[in-house]
Write a protein that binds this DNA or RNA. Structure first.
Lengths: 161, 161
DNA sequence: CCATATAGTTTAGTTCACTCAACCATTCAT
DNA sequence: ATGAATGGTTGAGTGAACTAAACTATATGG
């Protein structure tokens, strides 16, 4: 099952993507579990981490949850020490939800280990090759985002059909 | 050490990785949703798809669920047309749970679209470059699997500490 | 055969995250 | 200032998926 020949399938890209997919999902879940978060909560945390401080409403829109559900979500993330909840400076209705500086030790350890493990992987490539990989990762990420949105949209449409 | 700046620690590499990860997870979830499956169910389906026909007990062990929960799980997967439930030939207490040949039309359509989209991505690379990407994907997949297992193990250990 | 173990289902009860709607607090517009 | 809009929280009710335990059916060993 590990033949390195990319051109054997009609769909090399999709094949490559799907091989990674399961592994990524597993790691993602394992990481969430380490900090006592469900996969869904961990995903929400990702939004906060990446896209900086967000308001509750923003988070609700991004996750597709209702305002009420977001309150609970933020409660859990705060409980887990992953997130800080403050009030907006000028508009005091608004929340400022921001990730704490660094994840809890267990997660940091796992991430660090992952980092060195990935270091061993990248060490086997030349800088030029890594450029190629980076390009592929970028394009693939964009494609997956787009396709995820499209699939979600299709589901939306069906619900109203 | 010829790995350029891709593996420096505060790096774009980590960001790329985490964005790819989220994108993958989103696509994974969207795909599951299309066939009316939760992320958890979709993951279980992955086990059945990948590791061939399994018994209910096996599936229970692999997912960490109880026997009763697995009955419901398989019910849902069967309902969604993703899985077939037959009895074992020689031991008729046992179930033989196997993935159906092809996913339902909505999922197939989404996968097909994903396929052509990824085709457009791969079209932007030479065969040699794709070899490089394939190599990276394989190594990365193995690494993620290993790290996921390690993280899960750590969690396990903590529970008994 | 009969006793006991194993595979899976069923059922009753629990948990948990969600929605919806009512509810404060704050801001904005007139 | 006051009424309407906005941001977030709270609480009641719902539904999905879980566990534990009782149950059915099959297998196996003395």
């Amino acid at each position: 099952m590990h033949n390195g020949d990319v051109s054997t399938t009609s769909d090399p890209g999709a094949r490559l993507g799907s091989e990674l997919s399961d592994a990524v999902v597993m790691f993602h879940e394992a990481l969430g579990a380490l900090s006592g978060l469900s996969a869904a909560d961990h995903k929400a945390l990702g939004i906060v981490r990446r896209d900086g401080p967000v308001s509750a409403r923003e988070l609700a829109d991004r996750t597709g949850l209702t305002a009420g559900a977001v309150t609970g979500l933020v409660d859990r993330l705060e409980q887990a020490g992953q997130v800080r909840r403050t009030r907006h400076a000028t508009d005091r209705r608004r929340l400022v939800i921001e990730a704490t500086a660094s994840p809890p030790p267990e997660v940091r350890a796992a991430l660090a280990e992952m980092g060195t493990a990935m270091g061993r992987v990248t060490a086997q490539f030349t800088p030029e090759e890594l450029q190629v990989v980076a390009r592929w990762v970028q394009l693939t990420t964009a494609t997956m985002r787009e396709q995820a949105a499209r699939a979600a949209g299709r589901l939306e449409g069906r619900r109203e059909g």
